Amino acid sequence: MSKFGLWWVRWDNGVYISRMTLGGRVPTSYDEVAHWFKSRGFDRVVFIGNQGENIGYTGNGYEDGRYLALWIMSHISSIKYYVTIPFSRYGSKKLRDDPSEGFANSYWKDWIDGVLSVFDSNRLGFYWSYESCLQATPHDEANVTEEFIREMSRYIHNHGQEFIWIPATGSGTSARGVSYLNDPDYDGIPKIGGYFDYVFVQPNYYEYSKVDEEGNPHLPYTYEKLVEKIRWICEELPKKINNPNTTVSIEMEADRTVLGIHCTSPRDCPEGMNCDSNIHTCYEHCRDYHPQKAINYALDYVRALKDIDWKPSDLAYYFSTDFKVIDTLQEQCWRELNEPYV
């Protein structure tokens, strides 16, 4: 059973830096970050940069990919990993290329070639950073087609590498996804999921209190809906993907809201967080800014897996950039549910 952790990096003045901390403490080395992952049960990491917005961009896919690959290879030597394929440009939501023009002559093929030019036995494969489940549907504004994903998958697999995806599925607006994964007009996961070795579906329950379902917007995203959704991912999605080589699972979701960091204004909060002045607490993306409620929403994923009696062979974990999030949830999970969070 493999546990995949997200290792957030950022392009900063011509170099890459790791964004990971432990209780706000910056590590002394990148190998220390790898140790933080491994000591908490993670055996694989995914180098990620917010769909590409934190990944360097010159317009030359080969050189951009090679630069990140060289940085990883020269800094991290003690953990298996996947490298991102950045979708958006650095500092922008503009795309790095036009997917409708096909994969063969795209920036993304050049990026993959650049990464592959650097040999690293710790690299297991690639992560497709475009999260939208609308891909290969009529509602994908980026025009990513099934053919594009199929060709990218074939190219990666022909080079002996794995290919993984962590699609988002729910939010407060239908433009970002849908809650219920049974409408081919809005859910492309069954259509393209089989081109990946791992598909970790984001339930997005931790973030959103409302869902859109079969044309009904703003329904309450209840715990019962979470159980229903995870059951569908467990029982129905593998049948629709119909590829025995694709592992289907979920992403466990939490962030620094669970830490209850005190604040009186936004300047008191760590980078990427805001201050709720009513409760004097820093928050990130959770649907509720109270730390104990955020913890409860995060642990609902564990409860839902228990309720449907599903023990996935592999899990991915989003926990923002601070390992104290994992430590907090690990302690609470043992206390409340008598089992580990990771």
Rank of each mutant, 00 (worst) to 15 (best):
G52F: 01
V45M: 05
N243W: 01
R256T: 12
T281C: 13
L315C: 05
P340L: 08
M1R: 15
T246E: 00
L299E: 05
P238Y: 00
R231M: 10
R287D: 09
E235F: 10
E141M: 15
L124D: 08
R25L: 10
P340C: 11
I241R: 10
H290P: 04
D183G: 02
R40A: 02
G56M: 14
W108S: 03
Y82G: 04
I72H: 09
G160M: 02
T264Y: 09
P291S: 06
V248C: 02
V248H: 03
P312Y: 05
T321H: 14
S249M: 06
T247H: 14
Q292W: 15
S179V: 10
N60V: 02
W108Q: 05
A294S: 09
T247C: 12
N245T: 12
D185L: 12
Y318H: 09
T58D: 14
I250C: 04
Y223H: 07
W11M: 06
C263R: 05
I17L: 14
L70P: 13
T58P: 01
L219N: 09
R19W: 12
S209T: 05
G23M: 03
I48S: 11
S153L: 06
E207A: 13
N13I: 15
E336F: 04
C333K: 05
F319M: 06
R256C: 02
G56V: 10
Q135P: 00
P244C: 09
R176Y: 15
I326L: 08
R96F: 01
G125H: 06
I55P: 03
I85K: 04
W108K: 03
N105E: 13
K109M: 02
N216W: 09
L134F: 13
E207C: 10
N50W: 13
K225D: 08
S29G: 02
E32T: 01
Y221S: 01
S39W: 09
D197S: 11
D43R: 05
S132R: 09
G59A: 13
E331L: 13
T321E: 15
P244A: 06
C234V: 15
M20D: 03
F323A: 06
H280E: 11
A69L: 09
Y208C: 06
F42K: 03
I233N: 06
E331G: 11
E213C: 14
V201T: 11
C133P: 04
I55A: 04
I189E: 02
H35P: 08
S106V: 01
F148P: 00
L305G: 03
K94Q: 13
W111V: 04
K210M: 13
I149P: 02
H262P: 12
F42A: 03
V342M: 13
S39Y: 06
P190L: 01
V227C: 08
E336R: 10
D288Y: 10
P27T: 06
V9F: 08
S117Y: 03
N54S: 14
G24Y: 10
I279W: 04
S129Y: 04
N274Y: 14
Y180H: 12
A104H: 05
N105P: 06
W108T: 02
D276A: 05
W7H: 06
R335D: 13
G260S: 10
V325G: 00
D120W: 08
P99E: 01
L181H: 00
